[in-house]
Design a protein around this nucleic acid. Structure first.
Lengths: 334, 334
DNA sequence: CTGAAAGCGCTAACAT
DNA sequence: ATGTTAGCGCTTTCAG
């Protein structure tokens, strides 16, 4: 059986209340000697507090729920790793839940995390229809944070400057001399993707250029599926709304013997670590992952510690990383 | 405030004991009418059981701890995703912990997971020195499972046939006509990597070939760091002990203008999904991820349900996936 | 067939 | 300065 606070109390010859205070550093008014005795007993028995029992009474579980759309997307893996790391440094352990962008699964997870008395929740890629669960969280005063907010405008969001990312991409491609552009992704349901498109198109339309829109899943498969259509279009430069789509297009390009970037310039979004190992290396928009995680965790902890702490939407800057997948358009000799 | 079992009991006009039984499907001897009343109240109030409280008395939390060395390694991301998925289907929620292959962190996590009353633990890439924690788990009768057992021989391990993976690689490379081989990795501390080497070398030494061993971290950086040395050696084929190392070598190869596989044949191990998007596509050993996860979860659940259930080490088969990174050695015209 | 009561491990008033 | 007690939400005998 596990060692409980009672065992420690008995060995130290004190009450459980005393042990509790010492263990939780709330022992302002406890003799040094008593403290030492308790700590000695703790060490001798290898006592570890039971967070489950603790959270029942103190409503602190030192546990956070993290919901991601898809952990096998390196972007979310890197994000999750950073978040988990920062949270653990602050004393929290993380429940990881993979929603698969499935509304009912996301809802189930939120319920189950509530039932496990999480102190806070970080939701990445929230499903739009899920406003109700957010209300529930607020009613239960469980702090939450929305990251990579794809769908709804919501409080407590930390997002990046998607619009600027689109603009930077457009300017880069424009300066290279391209004339006809493709945008690949799906913004019917994703606000942030739409903002990427807005930034992209603002620059391009102002310059009088044409944009062909290709709608597809934000996955490698999504990219591969739509690739041929793009190759057969007059677009010479394509802006993928995330890196995974670009990966899929690369695959098809290699199959079809296209030469990148001579035949087609490609850009991505996210800057997953694998962007660098693609051939050619992918030009993309870098999300400040480390900063996102740090701010997210620090804000969530503030909300946990102080229920009055609030913020609206935080927008973080992005950077264009120029690599080898973009170049001058291939001017066919006429 | 959250809805508790008391609220339901009051609304349904029954005792909390009755509600508990109905909710937990232990209502063999309860009138259908009472059941209906309770269920109606549950629905009306939106009652969700508090696992924290439940686990305090029933010692079932429906919570599993999962420790991985590094979630940003796609292999572990895919593994974690599969495990989490299967576990959730069985009603469990997963704590994800990233050990960073750091012994003390791994130990802390195990303690913290114990303190959160997990029903079971899956540890990937266990640290060798950590035998004591396993003993603790056994003492507390918390079932655990070791996956991707890199270090110690231990009960409750599910591993793959690393030896066979090495053999298959060697045979493939040999059949291509290579003569001098490199092995890249680190088996000073990793049993499974050593078995890969054993299989590889058994075939090659029997054939009278030479193997040069390059020791490096099992990461992309590790591969990149050691790459130049390999390029300058007489090896024409290199067996990387995981895919990430191969990625690193690719990077350096591109920098140095090497042509793969003409100048050098490269193979990996794991078959992460990105093996396919490398250029050229990576020949590698495929781990049966889906099967590993399924068996792992099913065995862990058996152990949870029946403390007598036990097994030693389960060895799962691997497959060689031949792609484009291996070819005939480049015979210099003499 | 259902309810009352005890108690899981812990913390937080309230006593002493 | 420390101990006593009640109770967090739930399950589980044991009565009735």
């Amino acid at each position: 059986m596990a060692i409980t606070i009672k065992d420690v109390a008995k060995l130290a010859g004190v009450s459980t209340a005393t042990v509790s205070m010492v263990v939780n550093n709330k022992a302002d008014r406890i003799t040094q000697k008593t403290k030492d005795d308790v700590l000695a007993a703790v060490g001798e028995l290898g006592y570890k507090p039971n967070y489950t029992a603790r959270s029942l009474v103190s409503s602190e579980s030192f546990t956070i729920g993290l919901i991601v759309p898809e952990i096998t997307n390196p972007f979310f893996a890197e994000l999750a790793r950073n978040l988990e790391n920062h949270l653990h440094q602050a004393g929290y352990v993380t429940f990881l839940c993979n929603s698969g962008e499935n509304l009912s699964l996301e809802e189930r997870y939120i319920d189950e995390l509530i039932g496990r008395s999480v102190d806070g929740l970080i939701i990445c890629g929230l499903t739009a229809e899920n406003k109700e669960k957010l209300k529930l969280l607020e009613k239960l005063s469980i702090p939450y944070l929305i990251l990579d907010n794809r769908r709804v405008q919501s409080n407590f969001s930390i997002v990046i400057d998607d619009f600027e990312g689109g603009k930077l991409t457009a300017q880069h491609l424009l300066s290279l001399g391209h004339d006809t552009f493709a945008f690949v992704g799906d913004f019917s349901d994703y606000q942030n993707i739409y903002r990427r498109y807005e930034g992209f198109s603002e620059v391009l339309l102002k310059a009088g250029k044409e944009i062909i829109i290709y709608k597809t899943d934000l996955t490698r498969k999504g990219g591969q599926k739509i690739a041929k259509k793009i190759f057969n279009s007059k677009a010479t430069a394509v802006f993928c709304s995330n890196d995974l789509i670009a990966v899929g297009i690369y695959e098809q390009a290699h199959l079809d013997g296209l030469h990148l970037p001579k035949d087609l310039s490609i850009t991505g979004f996210d800057d997953i670590s694998f962007a660098e190992i693609l051939f050619p290396k992918l030009t993309t928009i870098k999300q400040p992952l480390e900063e996102i995680s740090k701010i997210a965790v620090s804000n969530l902890l503030k909300m946990i510690q102080n229920s009055d702490f609030s913020f609206d939407t935080l927008v973080l800057p992005v950077k264009l990383v120029v690599r080898d997948s973009t170049g001058k358009p291939n001017v066919p000799s006429s």
